[in-house]
Design a binder for these strands. Structure first.
Length: 290
DNA sequence: CGTCCAGGTCTAC
DNA sequence: GGTAGACCTGGACGC
């Protein structure tokens, strides 16, 4: 294990970052090729750097994020790995406006201790594929499909080129993805052809949230739920993720007997561009002990 | 063994 | 723009 990086756990606005809250920010963050290890809390994930597959282990050391690599990396590869970690932890994001908004908020005041960073994958492509693998199936199926994808990728998540050249037979017979297979393969092919630049979707100056939502909804297999979910992973926090998990969770935690989507949206509308994040944090507070 | 449904989406009205 | 019905899979459940 070689120490790759130590970087302050601080966001772009100087706000604190809770390592535990970040690695437990959502379920997809724990899908292969990533995993959360407890005691001490660490986040591990394999990724492809050039020709090699590298296993990175991340943990909090004091107020720093320490990143270790199982392989010794040259300067160029080390730089690339650091860049991917920065993307995953969204180190360039500034949550301080949100924190200022919820300071003293009864429901969400606790968040300002460093919660609210939604851990991303190294690529938007991976998050889009994984999100589609969460739709209309049990979580066990999501794990099965993702595990197959990572096996295809030789231990790392496959890139668009590999998915585009993989025959549909594999999607059906090996990954058992059903109707999702053609969706994912089509998206991969569009990326490879250069007609779809998912990685640019993080660029706030280039695309506003509304545009990104429209572009996401154009993708096969991406509807309102998936678009909102991917938006959260992109750090675009207005849309609420409304699905068969969040709806009952909201009822349980709010004490309401029933609430249609419009009612839930109104309950969080006052958080403005952070409404979706506020909703998600309200639902997941108990995932981590303060 | 059949039906239902799980962190929905698409198509056709 | 709003709403049925179909859709892969496989685990849970009722009969």
């Amino acid at each position: 294990m070689a120490l790759l990086w130590e970087v302050p756990l601080v966001g772009a606005g100087g706000e604190p970052i809770s390592f535990a809250r970040t690695v437990h920010s959502h379920g997809c963050a724990q899908l292969p090729p990533a995993e959360v290890v407890e005691d001490p809390l660490r986040y591990r994930r394999r990724l492809r750097i050039g020709e090699r597959i590298v296993a990175l282990t991340m943990e909090a050391r004091g107020n720093e994020l320490a990143v270790e690599s199982d392989l010794k990396l040259g300067a160029r590869d080390a730089q690339k790995a650091r860049g991917l970690v920065a993307k995953m932890f969204r180190l360039d994001d500034d949550l301080s406006p949100f924190y200022a908004q919820i300071a003293g908020d009864e429901r969400l005041g606790w968040v300002t201790a460093g919660a609210g960073r939604i851990l991303a994958s190294p690529t938007v492509f991976e998050d889009v594929v994984k999100t589609i693998c969460t739709t209309n199936c049990a979580w066990s199926a999501t794990i099965r499909m993702t595990t197959a994808l990572v096996e295809l990728g030789g231990g790392a998540f496959p890139d668009a080129a590999l998915l585009a050249r993989t025959p549909l037979k594999w999607y059906n017979d090996v990954a058992r993805m059903g109707y999702r297979g053609p969706y994912l393969r089509t998206i991969a092919a569009e990326v490879v052809a250069g007609r779809l630049d998912l990685e640019s979707f993080t660029q706030r100056k280039r695309y506003d949230d509304e545009t990104i939502e429209e572009l996401l909804l154009e993708l096969p297999g991406v509807g309102p739920y998936a678009a909102a979910h991917i938006m959260q992973l992109l750090g675009r926090h207005r849309p609420l993720v409304l699905d068969s998990w969040t709806r009952p969770a909201y009822l349980r935690l709010s004490g309401r007997k029933r609430a249609v989507d419009g009612t839930i949206r109104r309950a969080f509308a006052r958080y403005g561009e952070y409404a979706g994040l506020a909703f998600w944090l309200f639902l997941t507070r108990e995932w981590v002990e303060d």
